[in-house]
Computed example of a mutant assay.
Amino acid sequence: MIGLWNTHAQVFLLWLAVGTTLVFALPIFCVPLTWARLMGWAIPAETHLAIYFGRCLGAFILIVEVLMLRAALTGEALLATFEVLGAVAAMMIVVHIHGALRRIQPLSETLEIGFYGGMLLMVLLFWPGLS
């Protein structure tokens, strides 16, 4: 199963980079509280910390987006980028399961368990270099 579609790894990265940049990275980086409201989060009266953490998270997502875009367009660091994406997906599954079990997140965040599970599966299916 791992690397079953490895010949299409760069195309997968390009589509993943475009989609996650538009849906997650840019909104969280530029307008974190607007994004949070759309996702169903209650916004506290004091928002400075939430904005700070949102922009920090958005910045790290943008770094991963650049890694994906570079690997997709040039093939450079392709395997390392897939390793990062596998780690991101696995850790985000843990984060979202934890929030779901504690019942401290909106339904949209709990549903992201499926998104990150699917992302991890796709990363494994497109894993490069296993022909």
Rank of each mutant, 00 (worst) to 15 (best):
L85P: 00
E109T: 14
P128E: 05
G118S: 10
W127M: 08
E109G: 07
E76Y: 05
L78I: 01
R103Y: 01
H98N: 12
V95I: 10
L120R: 09
L124P: 00
W127T: 06
V94D: 11
R102P: 07
G75Y: 01
L121T: 15
V88W: 00
A89E: 02
L78H: 00
I104G: 07
G86W: 09
F126H: 12
L79K: 14
L79W: 07
G114R: 13
F82Q: 08
R102Y: 02
M92R: 02
L121P: 04
M91S: 07
T81G: 10
A80N: 15
G114T: 09
G99Q: 11
V95E: 07
H98C: 13
V95S: 04
W127S: 05
T81S: 09
G75V: 02
M92G: 00
I113A: 06
P128W: 06
A87W: 00
M119D: 02
M92I: 01
M91D: 04
L101T: 06
L78M: 01
A90W: 15
H96V: 13
A90Y: 13
V95T: 09
L120V: 10
G86Y: 06
L130I: 07
R103P: 03
E83I: 04
M122T: 11
M119E: 05
L78E: 00
E76A: 07
L107N: 09
P106F: 01
L120F: 10
G114I: 08
L79T: 08
G117S: 03
F82N: 08
V84M: 07
G129M: 06
I113K: 04
I104L: 04
E112H: 12
G117F: 01
E112S: 15
V88L: 04
I113G: 05
L121W: 14
F115N: 09
S108Q: 10
